[in-house]
Design a protein around this nucleic acid. Sequence first.
DNA 1: CCCGTACTACGATGCTTATCGTACGACTCG
DNA 2: CGAGTCGTACGATAAGCATCGTAGTACGGG
Lengths: 119, 119
Amino acid sequence: MTTAVPVPSSRDLPHPVRGEIRLEGVLHALSDPVRLRIVRELAAGGVALSCSHFDLPVSKSTTTHHFRVLRESGVIRQNYEGTAKMNGLRRDDLDDLFPGLLDSLLTAAGRQADRHGGT
Amino acid sequence: MTTAVPVPSSRDLPHPVRGEIRLEGVLHALSDPVRLRIVRELAAGGVALSCSHFDLPVSKSTTTHHFRVLRESGVIRQNYEGTAKMNGLRRDDLDDLFPGLLDSLLTAAGRQADRHGGT
DNA sequence: CCCGTACTACGATGCTTATCGTACGACTCG
DNA sequence: CGAGTCGTACGATAAGCATCGTAGTACGGG
């Protein structure tokens, strides 16, 4: 087996394993407007995005905080790539644990954004 | 401008109208284990239930608080019937605003309860 | 080796919330 | 009327959380 050492950065981040993800935690993570917006952008793109890609109405420290909440609740996966920290939705894990939930949530968020002004 | 109506003998309760219900509020309401449990029982029964029907691991004041959060977020509808206060899921409103969401949430909660010990 | 970029860690702050107990109001039934 | 049941209101408390600024660490490129 190709013991491909995947560039073991000294900076790695604690993620919950699939079985540790709790629905309450996911809902709490998504109940914040800033975090919901992040997740919507990640889902729209379909690819991992760096933190700095997002233009959020909060400071950089607060942005870090929100990304940590999303990671610790199991909604996103984070890993470093050079100086950039890449963020990706944990679609596989969430779809396995809670089939259909993520799509319903994203659809609901989209409908609400359409009704009101993208908020 | 609101000519403060005295509201003399009324025991009626403020509910958000359908259009005021916000996804973030609903998710926040359901991110508490006690409230999620209440909603699951309401959905399982399919009918309105009195507050006292629930055997929750919190005090009576706290129970009142949780029911109020659910009502103000638009998840349940409450009305008095004699001394009892009846609680019913706002299925029609939620399904109209966020089609499929409530069912996905309930299914997700059910699966999680199965995996772990009914928690 | 130094500098700029990307992000974090820490401490502070003010707001929200989950919790409780106690005292009270509304209703029903004797 | 009086007692019991059901639920509320209020005040207190402790914890949580969203927010910020500042100072610092890791990495990549000149």
